[in-house]
């Protein structure tokens, strides 16, 4: 059998999603962003909602997310993506709106906006890339940086007394009655990529079904910021991040109805 005999439509197991543009991604080799972008593009394609979807890109490495997926986009100020998404979604209830944010954007400067958007139960999707570091500005401490982790602004390692503790914001988000689906995923192995896609698809389906805010954290690597190679970065993530940020669903329900909320409280 020759190669040309294998290249047939029925043998195709993997192809570039139509919604990924031809633009060359600016991400470092080994970065998780590219994988998650691809998953988001696949999900929008699978659900056939290209004309209904509006993405909100953050400030951080994924500021140029709008160069890579063929949908309408808005670029938000640092941390404000959930407010921007709220504005879009409220006056366009027929649209599916998602934010794509990093840990500095979502859990530090935008902590107020994400809390309140989730607490209002906006019918939006939040994709949260947690790589425990500020990538774009050159590897400074993020709110999710682990204790002892060396960054440009914690050269001796993150110290709890000086810098406080790594913020488990997804656990906080899961407490909010406005959220429907809150999960933590990774995307570093074929199996985890498949699980991550399933989670992101559920999140988009929830937005279509107006179930409240769906929040998908993806524990990610930043080998450039961590100053290690991509393979070691995956190992470091498994050994150091997974124990503190365990992967799995935290909540899978619907936004509390008024009655359910009163009953619980």
């Amino acid at each position: 059998m020759e190669v040309k005999d294998i290249i047939k439509p029925e043998n195709l197991v993997y192809e570039k999603p139509k919604l990924l543009t031809e633009n060359t991604m600016h991400y470092c080799p080994g970065c998780t962003h590219g994988v998650v972008h691809r998953i988001v593009a696949e999900v929008i394609e699978d659900l056939n909602i290209q004309e209904r979807t509006i993405g909100v890109s953050p400030v951080g490495c994924s500021v140029f997310a709008y160069n890579y997926i063929d949908i309408d986009w808005q670029e938000a100020a640092h941390g404000r993506a959930p407010a921007v998404a709220t504005g879009i979604s409220r006056v366009n209830p027929d649209k599916v709106v998602f934010t794509y944010q990093g840990d500095g954007d979502l859990a530090s400067i935008g902590a107020a906006e994400i809390m309140h958007a989730c607490n209002r139960g906006e019918d939006i999707v939040v994709i949260f890339i947690n790589n425990a570091i500020y990538g774009m500005t050159g590897g400074q401490m993020a709110p999710t940086t682990l204790l002892g982790q060396v960054t440009a602004t914690t050269p001796c390692g993150r110290d709890a007394e000086r810098n406080g503790y790594p913020l488990k914001i997804t656990e906080l988000i899961a407490q909010l009655p406005g959220t429907s689906y809150v999960t933590r995923q990774s995307a570093h192995t074929p199996a985890s990529v498949r699980k991550c896609k399933k989670a992101i698809k559920k999140a988009f389906q929830n937005a279509l079904d107006k179930k409240g805010t769906s929040f998908v954290e993806v524990v990610s690597t930043c080998n450039s910021g961590w100053r290690i190679n991509p393979v070691d970065a995956n190992v470091w993530m498994e050994e150091n991040m997974f124990p503190y940020y365990p992967v799995g669903d935290m909540k899978d329900a619907e936004r509390d109805s008024k009655e359910a909320h009163l009953k619980k409280n």
Partner: peptide
């Protein structure tokens, strides 16, 4: 909509105006 802050309300305006 009553926003959580003026920071949020102007960004909601940004998002909605952008559509």
């Amino acid at each position: 909509l009553q926003a959580e802050s003026e920071v949020a309300s102007i960004n909601m305006v940004y998002g909605a105006a952008g559509t």
